[in-house]
């Protein structure tokens, strides 16, 4: 005898979790974003209201940081992908008995603090560091600096989120039946054709989830911009942080958070539709 309610009962803990820790905070965030100030100072507090102008005012003031967030995160995802795919391919198909070791090495940076790693990049990219000195010697740097430029922010984002790109792509590649690739070779497909028509389509779910796992947190990150960027390289996370913690303008901070979330959601839906897969690893 199977009870029809069983699946729903099984869903209950998950739904309760989501309800308490996602939906309720989300509703609270939305309500806060529409509050109106009770006085000229944020210390006067805020009252429940339907102040939709909070959104337009926030967007008007901070659209450059919005754009920069998506541009930096997009570039970091793209560059990350160009690094991660060959790496994952090598680990999956060529690494042999070094495979486990290489996977461990990919994950290893995550064992140390995010801040510590980002801070280390300050030293790596410093004017007297070997990277900048080498680039300078080759006359490749227009401004003789890397730190406190958008390049440093994008490099930091790419580095910090790379493992989240490599792992899903590796998982996808690893599941490919080698016989399928061999069959393509038997049918006279060149290496390039095998990559394009067999391996890439089969790896698509990994690429998709890897890019999502990189783009979403990178767009919301503020540590990289704060530590590695200049005043002109601030992202939307920096604004939300300062509005919430320092200025204590909760409605503006909430409105920005909400707009950011919705934009991410739309971008992700467009992206999934475009890449077109039902399977997220």
């Amino acid at each position: 005898m199977r009870r029809r309610s069983t699946p729903y009962l099984l869903l209950l803990p998950g739904m309760a979790w989501l309800g308490f820790f996602f939906l309720i905070p989300l509703a609270s965030l939305l309500a806060t974003s529409l509050q109106r100030p009770l006085g000229p100072s944020t210390e006067d507090g805020f009252a429940p209201a339907l102040e939709f102008t909070n959104y337009s005012a926030a967007l008007l003031a901070y659209w450059p940081q919005f754009l920069k967030s998506f541009a930096f995160a997009g570039l970091a995802s793209l560059i990350g992908l160009l690094i991660a795919f060959p790496l994952a391919y090598f680990i999956a198909f060529r690494a042999g008995r070094w495979r486990m070791l290489m996977l461990v090495l990919v994950v290893l940076p995550l064992f140390s603090s995010f801040l510590l790693r980002t801070n280390a990049w300050k030293t790596l990219l410093s004017s007297e560091g070997f990277i900048v000195e080498t680039l300078n010697a080759l006359a490749l740097l227009p401004d003789d600096r890397v730190l406190n430029t958008p390049i440093a922010v994008i490099a930091g984002l790419t580095y910090n989120f790379l493992p989240f790109l490599v792992l899903p792509i590796y998982a996808s590649l690893d599941r490919i039946d080698k016989a399928v690739v061999e069959a393509a070779a038997d049918l006279y497909a060149t290496a390039a054709a095998r990559l394009r028509t067999v391996i890439l389509p089969l790896a698509a779910p990994g690429v998709l989830s890897g890019v999502l796992l990189t783009f979403i947190p990178a767009a919301g990150d503020y540590i990289n911009a704060q530590l590695l960027g200049s005043i002109q390289d601030k992202m939307i996370g920096n604004v939300i942080q300062s509005q919430f913690i320092i200025v204590r303008d909760y409605p503006t901070a909430s409105a920005l958070s909400f707009m950011f979330m919705v934009t991410i959601l739309v971008l992700v839906l467009l992206y999934i539709r475009r890449v077109g897969t039902r399977e997220l690893v």
């Binding site: 006085g39 000229p40 100072s41 944020t42 210390e43 006067d44 003031a61 940081q65 005043i231 002109q232 390289d233 601030k234 920096n238 604004v239 942080q241 300062s242 509005q243 320092i246 200025v247 303008d249």
Partner: peptide, 19 residues
């Protein structure tokens, strides 16, 4: 600073900082 000026200057300061 009065609370009012605290907020006003604070916002202007954060804008200067790019936040």
């Amino acid at each position: 600073l009065t609370p009012e000026k605290e907020t006003e200057y604070g916002e202007a300061w954060q804008a200067l900082l790019g936040n």
